[in-house]
Structure formats: structure tokens, C-alpha cells
């Protein structure tokens, strides 16, 4: 292959606008998982907030996605955060009751618990959100295939990306059509339950009809052959990334082991 060919193929790879984007997808994924697990295992306020403030936020600033990350995380965290606050505040058994609503008591312990769960959730959603905002899903899956993931599973993962928007579109169209025909998604529970099948049926059936034709179209392109493929482009990986991943993993294992065995005291 000529140099021009190599350059052409590499141009098919997704762009990497910042030095954080240029990290290998696998490194970024491992970082997100390690940060999330560490936040849960350490618990309390200090640990998760430290991970959030010292690891996730600087990386997001470096990647230039800080504002988008905040927006995505708020959208993803808000519904569950509201539940956490309402439920924990009112239902934790505790000695100090702040106020009472019906059979529910709001306790200081409840507020404390809700706070702890919230900081963990924020750390989790931003760590994973940062990975998502700085990594093209295709690049991640291709990188995993380069590392040994089967091409068939790689296909299943990337095809999902296409399938979801297509199905959402279908669900919207069908739902609108059924509302127009007077299908109830508001009324009594019995009515709503009856509404499940007419909605699920057409969405699922129309998607499944595609399976047969796509299967045959892939069969004629030798999809069923088992064995490795030579990928057209690869994601960059600096030489120090593999050692970095081992270090991350080792730190995580130490943290988990220390907390499980009680070697480290709980941090507030």
C-alpha cells in the first residue's frame, strides 16, 4: 500500500480533536469504569467528590466538553435524583425527625443518605458521560475487535446504534397513529395496560421483518465466516497507555480490597 492509501484509510477513522479524545477508547472506558466503581466502593462524600473534581472535571475541561457533559449528566441524573431525594429523605429510619408528611417522616439520616447517593450518582454519570462524549462508539467497538472481540459481537454492538433511532422513529409514528385512532395512554390502569400490546406489537413486528432480508444480505458478504478480519483503520494508542491501564486496575483492586476487608476506615 502506498502512503496515500494509508492516509486515505486513516481518514475514515473518527476525528480526535483534543488530546483526551486521542486517548485509546479502551483506556477511556477503563477509566470511566474504575472511577465509577471506586466512587461506590469508597462511599461517603469525600471520595466520590474527589474523583469527580480531580479526575473527571479536569479531563472534561481538557477535552473541551465540559458544558455538554454537565448538560447530559443533568438530563440523565435528574429523574433518579428526584426519586432518591424524595424517597431517602422520607423513609430512612432515623432518630432526628425534621418534619412529617402523612405516614412519612423526614429524618436527618435520610438527608445524609440522599446526599451520599447523589454524589455517587453524579460521579458515575459524569465519568461515563465523559467517555461517551469523547469516544465514537464505532471506534470503541473496532478497538475491542482489534483486541480480540469476535467480529459478530462487534457487529451486534454497532448495529444497535443504528437500530435504536430507527425504532424510536417507528414508535413515534405508530404511537401518533394510535392516539389519532383513540388509543388511551392516559386513562385508568386497565386501559393503559390494554394499550401495551397494540403499541409494542407494530413497533417490534415492523423491526423484525427487516431481520430476514438483512440476514441474507450479510450472508452473501461472507458474514458467517469465522475468523479474524483485517480492519481498515485503528484508533491511536500511545505506548504508555497499556501501563497506565494496569496502574488504574491495580489502584482499583487495592481500593476494593481495602474496603472489603475493612483495612481502610470509612471516609466521611
Amino acid at each position: 500500500m502506498s502512503e496515500a492509501d494509508v492516509a486515505f484509510l486513516q481518514r475514515l477513522a473518527p476525528p480526535t480533536p483534543s488530546s483526551y479524545h486521542r486517548l485509546n477508547p479502551f483506556t477511556k472506558a477503563l477509566a470511566a469504569v474504575a472511577e465509577s466503581i471506586a466512587a461506590f466502593v469508597i462511599g461517603g462524600y469525600v471520595g466520590p467528590l474527589a474523583i469527580f473534581g480531580l479526575a473527571v472535571l479536569p479531563a472534561a475541561a481538557m477535552a473541551g466538553v465540559l458544558r455538554r457533559l454537565v448538560r447530559v449528566s443533568v438530563v440523565l441524573t435528574l429523574p433518579i435524583a428526584i426519586s432518591v431525594v424524595l424517597i431517602s429523605v422520607f423513609t430512612r429510619a432515623g432518630s432526628t425527625v425534621l418534619f412529617t408528611v402523612g405516614p412519612f417522616d423526614a429524618t436527618v439520616e435520610g438527608v445524609d443518605f440522599a446526599g451520599q447517593v447523589l454524589v455517587r450518582l453524579i460521579t458515575l454519570s459524569t465519568a461515563i458521560g465523559l467517555f461517551g462524549l469523547t469516544t465514537e462508539p464505532r471506534a470503541f467497538v473496532f478497538d475491542l475487535e482489534r483486541r480480540g472481540l469476535s467480529p459478530q459481537l462487534a457487529f451486534a454492538a454497532t448495529a444497535t446504534l443504528e437500530a435504536i433511532p430507527a425504532m424510536l422513529e417507528r414508535a413515534k409514528v405508530i404511537q401518533a397513529a394510535q392516539r389519532a385512532r383513540g388509543l388511551d395512554t392516559e386513562g385508568r390502569i386497565a386501559d393503559r395496560l390494554r394499550g401495551v400490546l397494540p403499541l409494542v406489537g407494530p413497533v417490534v413486528l415492523s423491526s423484525l421483518t427487516e431481520v430476514e432480508e438483512r440476514t441474507l444480505a450479510l450472508e452473501v458478504r461472507a458474514f458467517g465466516r469465522r475468523g479474524r478480519r483485517h480492519l481498515l483503520w485503528t484508533m491511536p494508542e500511545a505506548t504508555w497507555e497499556a501501563p497506565l491501564r494496569w496502574v488504574l486496575l491495580a489502584v482499583l483492586v487495592v481500593i476494593v480490597a481495602a474496603r472489603l476487608t475493612g483495612a481502610w476506615p470509612a471516609i466521611p
Binding site: A32, V72, V75, G129, F131
Partner: peptide
């Protein structure tokens, strides 16, 4: 992980 960063993704 694959849908991270999209409105449909769920970190949970």
C-alpha cells in the same frame, strides 16, 4: 457504554 453521551444512554 455505547450509548453514553446520548439522551438514550443510561449510566445506571
Amino acid at each position: 457504554f455505547v450509548l453514553a453521551g446520548t439522551p438514550l444512554g443510561s449510566p445506571y
